[in-house]
Design a protein around this nucleic acid. Structure first.
Lengths: 219, 219
DNA sequence: TTCAAATTCGAATGAATAGTACGAATTTCA
DNA sequence: TGAAATTCGTACTATTCATTCGAATTTGAA
């Protein structure tokens, strides 16, 4: 009692645990995408991951735990990918916004399951997620905070690439939100879109971002 | 066997049944919005409607039945409301599109729970809905079919209100889809949007539609 | 008021489900 | 090789769920 106890320094097989964690998350992600988050049971995840129930509970204490881990992972991944796309872009503000849209397109085409998962998150979890738990997707995209977006508008007006009548406080938020919303809805509807509109998802999304960019552009 | 049996002409207390049906659907709608479709149990719907389980099953054979009835009802209602908004609009194609966007705004502001419900539908049910079961939201809006949208672009280019470089085959689909997607995502995120962007949902949505319209507009 | 049929109720059933507990077997890695 | 970390196997509890069935109640027409 007199001296602080040294923490047990519990030994752990880190690489092994990391791999198991991955197995579980991958299985869960696939199942969530195939059947919807709320319809997937722990037992299914267990057997998809090739484990026993008691083992799974060594890693996650509930399905919600798994969901949140996946959300975090997915957001981080997609933020990194899109950031790297955007970083390559220089020049006019409009071009940088265009690069951002291109990043969203790439994600939609290459990792539609991720986008679908985030769409489920939007519709089901976003409303009662606690702020501490997670940054918003946009915040994840722009670590400097939303001032970055506001600045972008200012720069664009200054360099003549964006319309002068845009409102720095909200235009960029609105445009980005519209793009993300469109991306996620198209991912969710998937082949149904193609059947009804007779156009591939990618084409429709590109056209949507083109319209949005056109709406921001100076001429 | 020789003669066809006359159908029993089963007697039914129509007005009573209609009222009960309403009770059930209203209770279910509220619960679905509060807690998410897949997390609501039959027992909850039952008690929210003030019935016994066995009574509910006289009206709906499963939760899916209830969901689909609600989807149909919600789509019909919103399509009617928006149609009436659009019908009042005349003149340039751009103005008619603008009226459509205004209709979406009104719906978002006045009946956000309906929009949230449809957002859940998009994310969870849309992928495996059978075409016979339901028209798409856009098809519901435009009974004449999608040719209407294509025509609208043609007219807009002709009357000089829309950009000449739009693609009649997809521009309008893309714009409408973007607007609907934005509307549903904003409804889902709700107060979270306001907390993070510091702007009311309505303001953000109006700005998004403004950008989209600007992107379609000739100058 | 009466009566048959429509509707509701009460109670019960069986199936899934989440989550736990613990000792034995297996794997990891120093 | 050996100690410890991890998994397995199994069994168990308790809950929640959807659904059914026959009895009771209510309805509306005569």
């Amino acid at each position: 009692m007199a001296t602080a106890e040294v923490l047990p320094e519990r030994k752990v097989y880190r690489v092994h645990r990391e791999k198991q964690l991955c197995r579980i998350l991958e299985s869960a992600e696939r199942l969530f995408d195939e059947r919807g988050i709320d319809r997937v049971t722990m037992a299914e995840i267990v057997s998809a991951a090739g484990l026993r129930p008691s083992t799974l509970y060594q890693y996650f204490s509930s399905k919600d735990d798994i969901v949140w881990a996946l959300v975090r992972q997915t957001m981080e991944r997609s933020a990194l990918r899109i950031q790297s796309t955007v970083e390559k872009a220089h020049g006019l503000a409009l071009d940088r916004i265009s690069a951002l849209m291109e990043g969203l397109t790439e994600q939609l085409v290459k990792w539609p399951e991720e986008v679908r998962f985030m769409a489920q998150f939007d519709a089901l979890y976003a409303r009662d997620w606690s702020a501490e738990r997670l940054l918003s997707p946009e915040a994840e995209l722009f670590p400097d905070g939303f001032t970055h977006l506001t600045t972008l508008i200012h720069e664009g007006i200054a360099d003549g690439s964006l319309r002068a009548d845009l409102d720095p406080q909200i235009s960029m938020h609105a445009a980005l939100n519209a793009a993300v919303a469109t991306q996620r809805r198209l991912a969710s509807l998937g082949s149904r879109v193609e059947a009804e509109y007779g156009q591939p998802v990618e084409r429709l999304f590109r056209e949507a971002t083109r319209v949005i960019l056109q709406g921001l552009s100076a001429q």
